[in-house]
Every structure is written in structure tokens, then in C-alpha cells.
Design a protein around this nucleic acid. Structure first.
Lengths: 189, 189
DNA sequence: CCCATATCTTAATCTACCTTATTTTTATTG
DNA sequence: CAATAAAAATAAGGTAGATTAAGATATGGG
């Protein structure tokens, strides 16, 4: 199982013994999915959180009117799931789709809960991950409220150049909250 | 010091001994501020996180063009700060203003860090708080992207009726990302 | 109680961004 | 390498929401 990247990331925040690492690893499952496959579909149970070893994923919400809104992209090093539904064991509100062939490690809700019990340090790890996610999301809210579309697009390019170059214009537009036509117009300058 | 509300909230997630409670309490300071006062100003150091005992607060970002965007409101039971700048010890990006006379408990960054060291359970507590904040913020992003202003306004009224009745139309408009004039037009139906 | 100032409303005009439609370009697959 | 589909660009008309400005209604301090 490819756990090197995951462990090196965890090491930045907590220190695990060899037994703890082994226990953690026993709760993980490796998962590979090719482009366009769905990791999670709206309405289905959301039992896992995924750590991305490689590839790119996209989480989006499909409104009753049929409009897609991209909630987030995830690349190497990122964790992704429908967090609210995962934590509360509710049917997923969002769909998660593979944008570029993915290698991932998945951890179940039960697995995570047992980690919190058995290795309390995981509370610290996930506190930090949640802090980062919250701050990132709050910054996005600020930018959505205060900046025009053109500016939001340029910030996106700066912040996520490796993602911007791999996903479609349509997907970026739905992340920014504008139509592909309008983003195309912005680009044409 | 009025810690009853805070302790009863914490109790939902972790269990503290009397000594731990006392230690925690020793790191808290009581703070009272009247309407219109600022808890934190953009550009200043953001050394504290605040727990609201009573009253209402508003955090907003002031853009270089002079436009205010309301990031969040906070009422009884809520924690508030400029999370990103608090955690990274950076000058505040947002201003926090008192909307209704406030009684609060404040905890410094150093105090919080020492709590994580001395009482590891605080990692669990703040993991849960951060999870909730992240999920709330993500839901807001989804709604900002997928719903028109009128619908966002009605969701806001449903979700935060006690806040909606205490803050100005202008402040609600800046939370929803629209002008007060347009919100007034929405109301007039 | 009155004046000053902020807040809210209404309405006309304006614009950033949407919708629909057509064409061109780029991927995908047999 | 066609064949087909999907994505992107372009363009015209349309709308949600912004801007400006003026009047109506609070709110609060002296």
C-alpha cells in the first residue's frame, strides 16, 4: 500500500509509533479510479474520507434545476469527502468525480472514530486539517463577496496553477460561480 | 467570571476534571463591549479568540474600494475571531464589531496552545468546533453558488432568525453579497 | 423635544453576467 | 484515422442585481 506520502504529511503534525502506524494502516484501503468515474454520488451514503496520492478530483453540487456548482478540487496531498454528510452519516449532498486518474487511500467513518479513541493524537491531526479547510473556505467566501469574476479567476490561477491546467474551463467556471461563456469572454483579454 | 454557558457547551464534547476546569478558567478573561465598539480592527494583531456569552457580533472585510463584506455574525454560544490570522499570528484581515452589547470570554493564542499541551482533550473540542465551522462555511459556499439572492435571503432568515431580527438590512445585504437597495426590493414582496 | 445622522424605501438608469444559438476547436473512441 | 462527441469560442439579446439619487423613517445625542 502506498502510504509514504500520507505518512510524510502526517509527520508534520503528529508523531506515531510503528505500532500506531501499523494500526492506522490496517484501517486504510487503497483505491484507484479512472477519469470520469464517480467516487461518491449525490444521495448515496458517504462512508469514506479519501486521501489523494495522485490524480485530481472534483466535488460538485447538482441543483434541482440541473446546475452544477463545483465545491472543491482535490489533488495530491489533499483529503476529500462530503464532510458534513460523512461526519453526520447522511446521504451525500455532493458528487465527487475523477478529473485525472486517481490513486487514493480511503478511511471509513468507523475507522476514523476508532482512531480518535485509540490514538488521541488523531484529534490533533484532524483539528489542524479542519482548521486549514475552514480558513481556506472562509477566504473563498471573502473573495466571492468582495471580488468581481475576473479577479476571482486570476486568483484561482495563481493559487491552484497545477489544477487550473488540468480541469476544463467549464469546471473552473462552475467553481467561480459564473457561466463557461462568461469565463471564455474573460479569458479573451 | 461567567463560565457556566461555556462549560455547559464544552461538556457536550469533552469531560474535564475540576483542576482542568480551573486551569482553563485561569486562561480566560472576561470582556464587555457596547454596541459599535470594535473587538478587532483590520491590520491589528489578532491575539484572541472570543466565546460569546451574550450579545451579537459581526465580522466583516473592508475592501480597498471601501466595500464591506460580512463574513459572519456571532451570537450566544459562538466562538469568533479572524481564524486564519489568529492561528498564524498575522495582522487581522477582518474587523469585528459589536452589534448588540456583548459579554464575552477571551482566550489568547498562547493560552490555547498551552491548553493543547496540558489538556489534550482540547484538541478534540477544537477539532469538533472546526469541523462545524468548516461544514457551515462550505454549505454557505454551495448556497452562494447555486441560489439567487432572494432564496439566499430566505434561507438566512430561517437559519438565523434571532440574528436577522437584531442586525440592520445593510448588514444582512453585505452578508448575502448584494446591495441594501436590492435587499429592500426583495423584501418589498 | 428637536436636530443631526443613519437607515430604509422607491424608482430610473446602467452593467456584469446569463441565455440561447451557431461555429470552431479539441478530445475520445472504435 | 475517421467518426463522433465534448469543449471552447463567438455573438446577440435578456435579466439579476448595481448604481445613483431623492424622499421617507427611524435613531440617538444634547
Amino acid at each position: 500500500m502506498k502510504t509514504a506520502l500520507l505518512f510524510s504529511n502526517i509527520k508534520k503534525h503528529i508523531t506515531l509509533s510503528e505500532e500506531e502506524k501499523a494500526h492506522f494502516q490496517s484501517l486504510l484501503r487503497e483505491d484507484y479510479l479512472v477519469k470520469k468515474k464517480l467516487l461518491l454520488s449525490q444521495g448515496e451514503p458517504c462512508n469514506y474520507i479519501y486521501f489523494v496520492n495522485s490524480g485530481i478530483l472534483r466535488a460538485f453540487y447538482l441543483s434541482p434545476e440541473g446546475k452544477e456548482s463545483t465545491i472543491m478540487f482535490a489533488a495530491q496531498d489533499w483529503w476529500i469527502t462530503d464532510m458534513y454528510c460523512f461526519l453526520n452519516e447522511l446521504p451525500a449532498m455532493v458528487t465527487i468525480q475523477v478529473v485525472e486518474n486517481c490513486s487514493m487511500l480511503k478511511l471509513s467513518k468507523k475507522g476514523l472514530d476508532s482512531l480518535y479513541e485509540d490514538i488521541p493524537q488523531f484529534n490533533k491531526l484532524f483539528r489542524i486539517l479542519m482548521q486549514n479547510s475552514y480558513c481556506r473556505e472562509q477566504l473563498r467566501t471573502i473573495q466571492n463577496l468582495s471580488l468581481p469574476a475576473k479577479e476571482r479567476y486570476h486568483r484561482f490561477l495563481e493559487k491552484y496553477p497545477h489544477i487550473a491546467s488540468k480541469v476544463t474551463l467549464k469546471q473552473i467556471a462552475s467553481y467561480l460561480g459564473i457561466t463557461p461563456e462568461f469565463l471564455s469572454a474573460i479569458r479573451g483579454k
